[in-house]
């Protein structure tokens, strides 16, 4: 509350109205089992394989070595971008070695210069091919949003099997975002177009967390 007297009045008035309108026999909270919330793909046996399958079915690219990513970036002429400093050793460096321009600084004023952005995923959902990003582990929200290609570096050990399980793992993060494919719209005559405001290409780069090492800090 901001402490404005009018607002306090509204608040009291509203709660009074709500209490007055409560029915004589209210609906009880239903008892249900999370199992009924699981879709056809909600019982994965191999989490990584299921995630890859679902993720590619919604036009995502799943890689586990730099080579195919470098080829994709070159083929789509996205050769200049940002990498979270903590991820530079495992992915920024190989990209730089291959001749791509990689910076570990995201300058907001130059947001249009970054054609790709590499940030860390906090988890994923196998059932739906969803990447999970959090404020605490994303080095910059904008770096995961403004470039045409977003590469989320994902530790396969953090893949949750299903939506209910991913909800159980919410934790205390103030900002969690589930990303299920590239940014899209079908507003114009129902025709699907990818890359509206967010990335047009979404990549998951699967890499076990143990291989992550100390950051270096190059910049362009």
């Amino acid at each position: 509350m901001d402490g404005h007297p009018e607002e306090a009045m509204n608040r009291n008035d509203l709660f009074q109205k709500l209490r007055a309108s409560a029915p004589a026999s209210p609906e009880p909270y239903p008892d249900y089992d999370d199992a009924m919330l699981l879709s056809r793909t909600g019982h994965p046996t191999d989490l990584e394989a299921s995630f890859r399958q679902q993720f590619t079915s919604i036009n995502g690219y799943a890689f586990d070595s730099p080579g195919p990513l470098i080829s994709l970036l070159r083929a789509t002429a996205n050769t200049r971008g940002y990498c979270d400093p903590a991820l530079f050793p495992i992915l920024g460096q190989p990209l730089a070695d291959a001749g791509l321009e990689v910076s570990t600084l995201y300058h907001r004023s130059r947001y249009d210069d970054y054609q790709f952005g590499i940030t860390r995923a906090s988890g994923a959902i196998a059932e739906t091919g969803t990447l999970i990003l959090t404020d605490e582990q994303t080095s910059d929200r904008l770096a995961a949003l403004s470039p045409w290609v977003h590469v989320a570096v994902l530790d396969p050990a953090t893949i949750a099997p299903s939506i209910p399980e991913a909800i159980k793992r919410f934790g205390s993060s103030v900002n969690i975002i589930w990303v299920t494919g590239p940014s899209r719209t079908a507003d114009v005559e129902g025709i699907l177009i990818e890359g509206v405001h967010g990335p047009g290409v979404q990549v998951a780069y699967l890499s076990p967390v143990l291989s992550w090492t100390a950051p270096a800090s190059p910049s362009f």
Binding site: S39, T128, T130, I163, F170, S173, V174, N175, I176, I177, W178, V179, T180, G181, P182, S183, R184, G198
Partner: peptide
């Protein structure tokens, strides 16, 4: 199956 961006604030 899910909307692309589902944000929890």
């Amino acid at each position: 199956r899910l909307t692309v961006y589902t944000e929890f604030l």
